[in-house]
């Protein structure tokens, strides 16, 4: 599957896909989108790279292992929940900062929670793809 054309095309498509995934993530609170879809698109970008260049290079490009993305996602989501606690309210109560931020509008714990979902979904899908596409260990058997 890894042809020169695909590899060259992927180089230009992937940054765009990443940007699009972040766009989906942050506008999700007001327009169609959100952490789930954003994470899936981000994962799709990495998959495209994997198909073109192989798992080994994809792992290098990603820098962090997908397990760490999953763990980070859960932690961020939990953090978003605990913030409510720290603020003296129920677990998972939304806490919003009162200053407007360009592009995404307002920032609050629900946005943080969505970021956690985004990270976890990306990590999970990438993990599966790396597992399935990994041909290295089969050679050893």
């Amino acid at each position: 599957m890894s042809t020169l054309i695909l590899r060259t095309a992927v180089k230009y498509i992937i940054p765009g896909m990443f940007l699009f995934s972040l766009f989906l993530l942050f506008r999700g609170h007001n327009e169609p989108g959100g952490g789930f879809v954003g994470g899936l698109v981000a994962a799709a970008a990495i998959i495209l790279y994997t198909l073109a260049n192989g798992v080994e290079k994809a792992e290098k490009m990603l820098h962090v292992s997908p397990q760490k993305l999953i763990a980070a996602g859960l932690l961020v989501a939990l953090l978003a929940g605990i913030t409510g606690w720290i603020a003296g309210k129920e677990f998972m109560t939304g806490i919003w900062l009162d200053l407007p931020i360009p592009v995404m509008g307002k920032f609050g714990t629900p946005v943080l929670f969505d970021i956690g979902v985004y990270l976890l979904v990306t990590g999970m899908v990438v993990k599966v793809i790396f597992t399935l596409a990994d041909t290295r260990e089969e050679g050893n058997q």
Binding site: H29, N30, E31, P32, G34, G35, K106, P110, D114
Partner: peptide, 13 residues
């Protein structure tokens, strides 16, 4: 929930 996308607000809030 400070959001216009009700489905997303349900999910994350």
């Amino acid at each position: 929930g400070k959001g216009r996308n009700i489905v997303n607000v349900i999910l994350v809030d």
